[in-house]
Amino acid sequence: MAGDPTSGLGADGFDPIDFLERAVPVASNEDVTEMRELLVGTIEARGIDARVDDAGNTLASKGADPSQASTHLVFNTHIDTVSPHVPFSRKGDDRIRGRGSCDAKGPLSALLTAFFAVDPQESRLTLAVTPDEEVLSTGAAAIDLDADLYVVGEPTGLDVCPAARGRFQGTLTLSGTAAHAAEPESGANAVAGLEDALAAIRTFDDGRQPHPQLGSATLTPTTVTGGEATNQIPARCELVLDRRSVPPETAEGFRSELIAAVRGAVSADLGVEFSLTDRPSPFLEAFATDADHDLVRTLAAAAERAGGPGAVRPFTAATEASYFAPAPVVVFGPGELADDEGAVAHAEREYVAVADVRRAAAALTDAARRLVG
């Protein structure tokens, strides 16, 4: 229709829905090789060089040399999905269903549309697609592009998300002294010490000011183990904690503060240790881009012109966007993490609306042309 910002998509020979219908049937929950081959072939079919680095990232660029580019914009998302694989289906014309349809092959289809459509001259546009976002993010951790702006494709309902909490995980260990349960005073009960430790955890964030975009951090006990026999004073207790952080907290800063808080709460005859879960890549830390930044305002306005809400809000899940901060970064894409019926991403009913993929493609194309085109 006249004035429709989604009209003309695919005029360069690329249709995001056609690509999405080929991508969703490809299982990429256990091995991304076939999906990566589809992506590389799609890029190279348009005469653009694509390379796969040692970390498994797919990289392609257009425009000026990095050393001479006036602005360098990066489009990022991932090709891996969670298990189990959910087969592709399309019922009618309104929704594409299957694993990865919204997380994140729908966003990838929209990003590809804009990447192919925009022709930067003095600026640079890079596509950087990672292989293991749902697991360890070793791909994203290895990306070192030193760019000016980043857009990360995730299901946001076409909202622009310039901030997200981080996620840390670790194990709190209380160590005591084993003894016969008939004479509890002869030992140091690690399980009993958990009562004071949990009190310290509940009050850990008391007095902290909420982040202006993300609100307050959360600290949640998730699993607990302790004791070896029902007639023995337990000498050891382990509690796993989930931390959803806000800036400027770091993983190491959280670890040291938590140890101090618990040490001050439990009995002196108990040992206190806290170990962050071992990872081959850094934790996904919190990030926040100024909501008034040109990247945020430009993409929000473009999303509204494309028929989306154009809202600016925090992203509710941890994301690889944190690896690109403190450079300006936003999360954006078609699809929803959850709708009125329940979970969508990572669920058996995962889907994305065809119209929203096209709107996202139009918004990204519009915004990229204004930022680097």
Rank of each mutant, 00 (worst) to 15 (best):
P84V: 03
P84D: 06
P84T: 08
P84G: 07
P84K: 02
P84Q: 01
H85R: 02
H85D: 13
H85V: 12
V86E: 12
V86Y: 01
V86N: 03
V86G: 08
V86S: 04
P87A: 10
P87C: 08
F88D: 10
F88S: 07
F88H: 04
S89T: 13
S89M: 11
S89V: 13
R90L: 04
R90S: 00
R90T: 00
K91P: 03
K91N: 15
K91R: 12
K91C: 14
K91Q: 12
G92V: 09
G92K: 03
G92A: 03
D93K: 10
D93W: 04
D93E: 15
D93R: 12
D93M: 11
D94E: 13
D94A: 13
D94P: 08
D94G: 04
D94T: 15
D94W: 07
D94L: 09
R95G: 02
R95F: 10
I96D: 04
I96W: 02
I96N: 00
I96M: 02
R97N: 13
R97C: 13
R97P: 01
G98M: 13
G98N: 14
G98K: 08
R99Q: 14
R99H: 13
R99P: 04
G100F: 08
G100K: 05
G100A: 15
G100W: 07
S101Q: 01
S101N: 01
S101V: 01
C102F: 04
C102G: 03
C102N: 11
D103A: 07
D103Q: 10
A104Y: 06
A104E: 09
A104D: 12
A104N: 13
K105D: 01
K105A: 00
G106R: 00
G106A: 04
G106M: 01
G106C: 05
G106V: 05
P107H: 04
P107Q: 01
P107I: 06
P107D: 05
L108W: 07
L108A: 03
L108H: 02
L108Y: 05
S109G: 11
A110G: 12
A110Q: 05
A110K: 03
A110L: 07
L111E: 15
L111W: 06
L111Y: 11
L112T: 05
L112Y: 00
L112N: 01
L112Q: 02
T113V: 14
T113E: 15
T113G: 05
A114F: 05
A114H: 02
A114D: 09
A114K: 06
A114I: 06
A114L: 09
A114R: 05
